[in-house]
Design a binder for these strands. Structure first.
Lengths: 231, 231
DNA sequence: CGGAACGAGTGACTTTGGTCACTGCGTCCG
DNA sequence: CGGACGCAGTGACCAAAGTCACTCGTTCCG
């Protein structure tokens, strides 16, 4: 198992270039946890116990409103770490985390991680870099929420999905949704119904062909134009 | 002048507890700039040249949409630093900065700051702490934009202002606005007209007494109740 | 003095976002 | 088999947000 753990550690930016001995020292401190799809890793406001690294699956970081709505802040895949910050500043988790798919997660206790950072100052610099990109992403979300419509955000999301996992075909680019409309809605900060409606509308306008969770993007260029207009 | 510079440096969390010699070494590298109210320090997308520290006045960090709307991300007062991040990761500024009031600002070039961090690893830890609180604030903005109404955000802003600079009087707490409705709108992510209308409405409902930029909060408890409801 | 320029208030309207309630379709399982 | 459940689609509303076009004061300055 330590074999596997080290392989993951090498894949995370925070610990990418450590020596053999450093690596196994770290690996010894790491524990392994499994979470089923939908399971909660921690809730907003919980005291922070340590640092998480995604080994397999996807973890969703989100805010929950008292009315029951969710707003996704990040979706982290294999190799990503999260909750670095509360580990450092000792505060509570600012958001909740749940498994978007069945996931394996590595865990390092707060104390162990802090000690490790003290011994390896360059890791602290890595932390800054990781946190930095996280900050940029959050600014992007704020920009979206404040300047764009649900329609534009949905288009942007579709474009990202086709980019990431689309396969070309005769009629256009095919994409398969791996999550429910509910989940999509939480990612772009709205509700299920609006996702449904906007998808229908995009289909009616000829940009898409929707069949359940299979989507064929028929007019990629047109979509991009729609997204840009009045941003 | 070095006297003054060191005094400011001591007040910023990043450099609070340095020794005398460290401090004067740093102070020698610092330059001083003045910006008039409304002046632009840098624009989103500019290459990052260095770190800023506020000496006097207030600096507004904001996003600008292509339609001309603004969304404030932070307002930094004396003792605050900003743009720490791009200094580290070498990226461009993710947002623009302008002076909300006439301001004096200290500036450290990227290279000097990086060298200084390399020599003083504990400063890197401070950077993480500062960036951490910034991240929490951004998450707060996202939460507000995604879950609350303009009305609730305006109330929250008023409550913050009375907290910060309100003076009790016979009829309630007096607050003086130092910025235009336009500016307030940018802070809560909406437009001038909605600020105006919502203020009128809050007055009509008996929570406030508005006279130009003077506001008397007549029912603090009531406002808090309004803010909480359906959050 | 006269008139830009700016900030504020407001009526009338449109668009967008969101809610509620219900239908229909699979799938999973007792 | 049949019903419970989760997910998706949709019509009918309603409320919030935003736009446009004006008016009215101030202030600032040539």
């Amino acid at each position: 198992m330590n074999e596997l753990v080290e392989k993951i550690l090498r894949k995370t930016p925070l610990f990418a270039n450590l020596t053999e001995t450093e690596m196994s020292a770290l690996a010894a401190r790491v524990s392994n946890r499994r979470f089923d799809r939908g399971a909660l890793l921690f809730s907003e406001g919980d005291a922070c116990t340590g640092l998480f690294l995604v080994a397999t699956g996807k973890i969703r970081i989100f805010k929950l409103s008292s009315a029951g709505r969710e707003q996704v802040l990040a979706v982290e895949g294999p190799g990503s770490s999260f909750a670095e910050l509360p580990v450092f500043d000792g505060g509570n988790y600012p958001a909740s985390a749940s498994a978007l798919e069945n996931a394996e997660v590595l865990f390092i206790s707060r104390k162990d991680f802090q000690n490790f950072c003290r011994e390896h100052p360059d890791v602290a610099l890595k932390v800054i870099a990781v946190v930095g990109s996280r900050l940029r992403r959050l600014v992007g979300i704020i920009e979206d929420l404040s300047f764009t419509t649900v329609r534009q955000r949905l288009i942007a999301l579709l474009l990202r999905l086709t980019q990431a996992s689309g396969t070309p075909s005769k009629e256009g680019v095919r994409v398969e949704l791996t999550k429910s409309h509910q989940d999509l809605a939480a990612e772009i900060g709205t509700v299920r119904e609006l996702v449904s409606r906007n998808l229908s509308r995009l289909q009616a306008e000829g940009f898409l062909e929707v069949d359940g969770r299979k989507i064929i993007v028929k007019d990629l260029a047109g979509l991009k134009r729609e997204q840009a207009s009045s941003e």
